[in-house]
Every structure is written in structure tokens, then in C-alpha cells.
Amino acid sequence: MARIVVLGAGPIGATTASRYAARGDRVTVVTRSGSGPHRPGIDRVALDVAAGGLGEVAAGASVIVNAVNLPYRQWQAGWPPIHREVMGAAESSGAVLALVGNFYVYPAGSSPMSARTPIDPPTRKGAIRARIWADLVAAHRAGRIRTLELRGSDYVGAQVVSTDGAHAGPRLVDPVLRGRRAAVVGDPDAAHTWTAVDDIARTILTLAEDERAWGRAWHVPSAPARSIRQVAEDVAAAGGLPRARVSRIPRPVLRLLGLAQPQLGEIIEMLYQFDAPFVATHEETTEVFGVTFTAWEETVAAIVAAARARITGGRARTAVGATQSP
């Protein structure tokens, strides 16, 4: 039985922690509030990682999963102290550090992206992620830590149907299932890679303990690219509805909305991911480790079931900030 520390209890953190616990491992979930899955095998610790103390929590751990997901507006000030503390805890404990990443580090217009695509981020947020990964790689090469990054695209799955910031979350799914028009960000017909939350968690469990994966980044296997319009149509079909209607939020309107909703304002910098094809490949991960993606139809069915359960149950939505991994 391994000891695992998972940082963050959002869709990725909670799902990953639950998978480790189901495997029989002892899991500690660390969040500022002490939240996390309530199930056997999982302990929850309230800790502001940026303020220190993670090294003590992580002592004796074999894997640390960094699934922290800050709201965009907090990245500039919030990520550096968290990153330093997590890297220090990995060094002091000897645990493998698995970082949940994204495709923000790649140049705009580089589709299809692979894990070998050169890092050249076109945005401030991408630059922050690139610096974090560069630090980890340098520490790994120096023999101070063992690390890897698992990169995925925008999240899909039953876990994000209550996440207001998710592009394939309630902002898209709720109107479709209610027969209304969904307002979307970017070109609704641009091809886009979507990564299932379950596939991210499964890839973490497989790669974190395989030394062949250490020291570099890997792409999480994801279903073939679908435009936002196609995602909406798939949700409608799975929900027994005749059609889905989507329309793009005009950029000037998005800017105005961003004045009242900072998260939407931050999305403007990321529009290049939705105004043109944003597609990634994952074949190397599958070839080396045998990890594959969940069938798209299965993911869509889970989305519809979870969304309808939430809508009819009247449960409040949970705002998680960014649409991707930290």
C-alpha cells in the first residue's frame, strides 16, 4: 500500500484521489479548506500550501500529485509560492512529483501539438506554466527530484457539469439539455481536443510510478477532436433532443462581461485556443504505456446523466476558476 498526497480537490484532484484509494493506497488530500472526497482510504488536510508546511504532510509519500487549480486572475501572484513549496516537499520526501498540466505552453497555431512540440507560450498564463515546468526539469536533471507532467486539454466528463468555468460545463450543457441556445467562446466550428477527467486520473496512476515517464511531459490520451458545436450536438443526441443551438459570444461583449466577471475577462487572452483548431496528439503515451482514452460516447452519456441529476436535484454549481489544469 503506497502513500499518496494529492494537492487540490477539484475534478482532477478528487477523481485521482478516489482512484488511488480504490486501488488500496492511503491518500491524503490537501486543500486550503480541508475539502475532498469522503471515502475510506482518504484523509483530508486543511493547509495553505503557499504558506508552508507541505514537507511535513508529504513525509513518507511515494507520489505527490499537484492538481491545484487556481482561478486565472490569481496565477501571477499565487503560483510561484505554491510551486516552490511543492518542489521543496518533493525534494525532502523523495516522492515522485506528478504535475497536472495543459497545452498553454505551446505556440499558437501549432496544431496538432505533441509532447515534443517546442515550448513557446503566447500568453502570460502560458509563460507561468512554462517557468514552473522548466524549474522542475532542472531539478530533475540535477538529481534533486523525480518529476513528470501530464498535459491535457479542456476537461470534459461528469465531474465538470457543475464547474462554471468549464467550456464543456454548465454554460454549454445546461442550455442544450433545456432546448435553449448556448452562448460559447470562440469559433463554434473550430476543431478542439477535449480531455476526459477519468482519463487524466488514469494516466496519472499509470505513469507516476513508471520511471520511463520521469523527467519529461506526456499527453493524456484524448478522444478525437470535436468542435464545440459538435459537442453540443452530441449532448443533445444523448439527451434525446432533436438539435443543439449554439452561437458565439462576440469579442466586444466578452470584454464587457469581463468587467463584471474577471474570469471571463481572463479568457480573452486564451481565445487563440478557440478561434482556430486546437488539437493534440497522444500516440506516444499509448504506445509506451498502453493507456487509451475513454470512448467519446461513454463520456457524453456520463455528462448528460450527471447534468440532468444536478438540474433536477437543484444542487448549486461550483465555480472552480480556470477551465484547465493549473
Rank of each mutant, 00 (worst) to 15 (best):
V49M: 07
V137N: 03
A17C: 08
G157F: 04
S162A: 12
V300Q: 00
R26F: 00
E209Q: 14
I119Q: 14
R245H: 09
A295L: 14
R317K: 05
G258M: 04
L254Y: 02
A61F: 02
F293T: 15
L136H: 12
V156D: 08
T285G: 08
A319P: 14
R73N: 02
A115T: 14
P40G: 05
W133K: 14
L241P: 10
Y20C: 11
P37Y: 02
V279N: 05
W218E: 02
H167M: 13
I145T: 12
A46H: 11
D135S: 11
D275Q: 09
I128D: 03
A183V: 12
H219M: 04
T206C: 10
G24Q: 06
R23L: 04
E233L: 12
A46V: 08
A223F: 09
T28R: 09
R248G: 11
V235P: 13
G313H: 02
I64T: 07
S153E: 13
R248T: 14
A232R: 11
G126K: 10
V49H: 06
L256P: 13
P122N: 06
V161S: 05
A77R: 13
L148H: 13
A238G: 11
T299Q: 15
R181H: 01
V156Y: 11
A98C: 15
M113Q: 12
I303D: 03
P37A: 03
G215R: 00
R251L: 05
D189Y: 13
I249H: 05
V27D: 01
S222H: 15
G36M: 07
A59L: 01
L177V: 07
A98W: 07
V5L: 10
W214F: 03
S62M: 03
H219T: 07
A21I: 02
T195E: 05
R308A: 05
D174A: 10
G152H: 01
V173L: 02
I303M: 13
V279C: 09
A46C: 10
G152E: 01
R315H: 08
Q263C: 08
E287I: 07
I200L: 15
W194T: 13
I204K: 04
A302F: 03
S18R: 14
V137L: 08
V96Q: 01
E91C: 04
I145R: 06
G240N: 02
R39T: 11
A51Q: 10
V173N: 03
L257Y: 04
Y20N: 09
R251E: 03
L150H: 05
A67M: 06
P262D: 01
E56P: 05
A134T: 06
V253F: 03
V29W: 01
R144L: 11
E91G: 10
R23D: 08
M113E: 02
V246D: 12
D25R: 11
E149V: 12
V279Y: 03
R44C: 15
T16I: 02
S227L: 04
V235G: 12
G52R: 07
E284D: 15
S114C: 08
W79F: 04
I267S: 09
L257W: 06
H192C: 06
